[in-house]
Design a protein around this nucleic acid. Structure first.
Length: 428
RNA sequence: GUGGGUGUGGCCUAGCGGUUAGGGCGUCAGGUUGUGGCCCUGAAGAUCGGGGGUUCGAAUCCCCUCACCCACCCCA
């Protein structure tokens, strides 16, 4: 027996009962973005592979293992987009947005793809909401984006003081080069006592030793030099300004010098937002400055800052906390057609009601009345609309309330529109 | 990429060497002639993820494989 196909590994169907929550998050995100005057950009799900390969550094794990790469029939090398920022920047350059008022404020919402091993909160197809301010180096923009991001979480129902915002400044690529040298000198004598992972990181990405889970309590990690001590004067001033803005907005944060980013185009501010006490894949959103990215993509040197947040992780957290609406979608009216003429009249009645803004499930003919009524009861509808041959003949329908103790009554089919309009505005 | 756990009808699950593989939810149909949500009755639906072994006999033991989950790694 051949097994029937399943959704690809790490990819999921969003069933109707889950769709409401996702839509709520999406609507809220878009509403909040517009509150801050950001406008939507939608880019293709597929990009020329170079958009992501050049920006991620050709040698890194990211490219080697985690990007869905393929060649199309014309021989072009394409990639399923793994993130939104590079694509937004590509569009910024391609459409000459540097000649629009700066910064260009953009947001996006959509699917992304990473060939990772799935686990809690990590999927191969994921949904992200991201916001970017391209064309400004103002620390006020960094703070605005942090504020926007936290506002989104608050609007979704997360208690304001529950989420932890951690921020850091990583200076420029030059800063990190100098800092990495200092770290190398610092960890060299302790190499033997560090975990295998950290030993590997010592070679590949030494900054990552700082957020190793295994060596978090290692004395050498605890007393490691702080990147903030290696910032240039300008970068330090920028970071101070970001913090001042956050203070002015009453945003609580924790400076965490262990937050780092590997790639060269990152600069200055980086931040992460995490729910308390969560496990493995806990960060629900992260952001930072990428002053060097546009240039890497062949555009003019343009400072920019942005963040992205994972919708599935937000949904996961919301469900754990019982946030979001739990109301099941139900039609307002379910029709109960009986007999051939009744079925025709029921369909007409349904059309009239829908035109008036009432949602109607038109019952299909052929079931016993008992079964049809049972279905109407289970559906959660407010009214059953019974139409048999007799009613069809008389040009009427029977309107039976399914909740409360209102009596059922007979209504002329010609009056249904008015009834529908009236009840629809009252919200039934 | 590494390690651990799990895998029985649509969903939850009992069974852990010999059962016609049991139950709950759900679905569908009935409970007299055109009126629901509760209740009652009945039906459909699984060969126990897949493959290979051990055994007189396997859902139950072993091996392989796949998938899912969890953690590590990675996290643009």
């Amino acid at each position: 027996m051949p097994t029937s196909p399943r959704a690809p590994r790490g990819m999921h169907d969003v069933l109707p009962e889950d769709a409401d929550l996702i839509r709520f998050i999406r609507d809220t995100a878009e509403r909040v973005a517009r509150l801050y005057d950001y406008r939507q950009i939608t880019t293709p799900i597929v990009e020329d592979a170079s958009v992501f390969l050049h920006t991620a550094g050709d040698e890194s794990d990211i490219v080697q293992k985690e990007v869905y790469l393929f060649e199309d029939r014309g021989g072009d090398r394409l990639a399923l987009r793994p993130e939104g920022t590079a694509a937004a920047c590509r569009a910024y350059i391609e459409h000459g947005m540097s000649s629009r008022p700066q910064p260009v404020r953009l947001f996006y919402f959509g699917p992304f793809f990473r060939y990772d091993r799935p686990q809690a909160g990590r999927y191969r197809q994921l949904t992200q909401f991201g916001v970017e301010a391209i064309g400004t180096d103002s620390p006020a923009a960094d703070a605005e984006l942090i504020d926007l991001q936290l506002t989104l979480y608050r609007e979704l129902g997360f208690p304001a003081d529950e989420l932890i915002l951690r921020i850091n400044s990583i200076g420029t690529a030059e800063t990190r080069r100098r800092y990495a040298e200092v770290l190398t000198a610092h960890f060299q004598p302790h190499l033997g006592t560090l975990s295998r992972d950290s030993q590997r990181r010592f070679e590949t990405n030494i900054l990552r030793i700082l957020d190793s889970k295994e060596d978090a309590a290692h004395p050498a990690v605890i007393v490691a030099p702080n990147i903030l001590d290696y910032l240039s004067e300008d970068d330090a001033a920028h970071f101070e300004a970001v913090k001042s803005h956050l203070d002015a907005l009453d945003i609580r944060y924790e400076v965490d010098p262990r937050i780092v980013r590997g790639l060269d185009y990152y600069a200055r501010t980086v931040w992460e937002v995490e729910p308390p006490g969560a496990g493995g894949q806990s960060t629900i959103g992260a952001g930072g400055r990428y002053d060097g990215l546009i240039e890497v993509l062949g555009g003019p040197s343009t400072p920019a800052v942005g963040f992205a947040t994972g919708i599935e992780r937000i949904a996961l957290n919301m469900r754990e906390r019982g946030l979001g609406s739990t109301e099941e979608a139900a039609p307002d009216v379910v029709t109960i057609p009986l007999g051939e003429q009744g079925a025709l009249a029921a369909a007409r009645a349904a059309a009239i009601l829908r035109a008036a803004g009432v949602s109607v499930r038109n019952g299909l003919p052929g079931r016993s009345m008992k079964a049809a009524m049972r279905g109407a009861g289970v559906s959660g509808a407010r009214y059953a609309l019974i139409v048999g041959d007799a009613e069809a003949e008389a040009g009427t329908v029977v309107l039976k309330p399914l909740r409360g103790d209102e009596e059922q009554r007979t209504v002329a089919i010609d009056d249904l529109g008015a009834w529908g309009a009236a009840t629809a505005t009252v919200g039934l």
